[in-house]
Design a protein around this nucleic acid. Structure first.
Length: 154
DNA sequence: GCCAACGTTGGC
DNA sequence: GCCAACGTTGGC
């Protein structure tokens, strides 16, 4: 069992959008970074804990708890010529990009990035490191525990 | 909308 | 295989 923080732009898929989807689940399409891809393809398993993070928006922060709901499978968007995620070098026989399904567990009161920065317990979190841009980062179990037990107010 | 930080691309 | 140029991310 691993823990992850996954960034989504709410203008694209927000926590409220996720709640309206079938099974309250979404294919985590559009990851075009190899390190983030490898996390999904090689390390995620069904049931892993996910912090659903809103990025590139007015108040960035953790917006909900979710879970990994599938193994990795090829990202359909890499084959769609009209998609901004189209990749001409990818083929169904040799897919380059993968995603997992992410399912809502519960929406929470937003924990702003500015609050996360206040807690020394979270000082080592990847997402809080200067210059970090990875959209998927692993969380230490103690970071997960601290956030879900101490900072979450449903 | 600015811009720092970082990843990727491609010429050599 | 180096590295400059370019594109993207994402907080502010």
């Amino acid at each position: 069992m691993r823990y992850w923080l996954m960034k989504s732009e709410p203008a694209d898929v927000s926590i409220d959008d996720l709640a309206t989807f079938p099974e309250q689940s979404v294919a985590w399409y559009g990851v075009r970074n190899y390190q983030a891809r490898n996390f999904m393809r090689d390390q995620m398993t069904i049931g892993d804990g996910v912090l659903f993070y809103h990025s590139n928006c007015k108040i960035p922060g953790i917006a909900g708890i979710a879970r990994v709901a599938s193994g990795a499978y090829p990202d359909a968007k890499q084959f769609e010529q009209s998609s901004k995620y189209f990749d001409a070098k990818a083929t169904p026989e040799q897919p380059r990009w993968f995603n997992v399904d992410v399912q809502l567990v519960k929406k929470i009161a937003l924990i702003p990035l500015s609050e996360l920065r206040l807690h020394p317990e979270l000082a080592r979190m990847r997402t809080l490191q200067q210059g970090n841009r990875l959209s998927i980062t692993p969380l230490d179990p103690d970071e997960w525990e601290f956030i879900t037990a101490r900072l979450v107010h449903a």
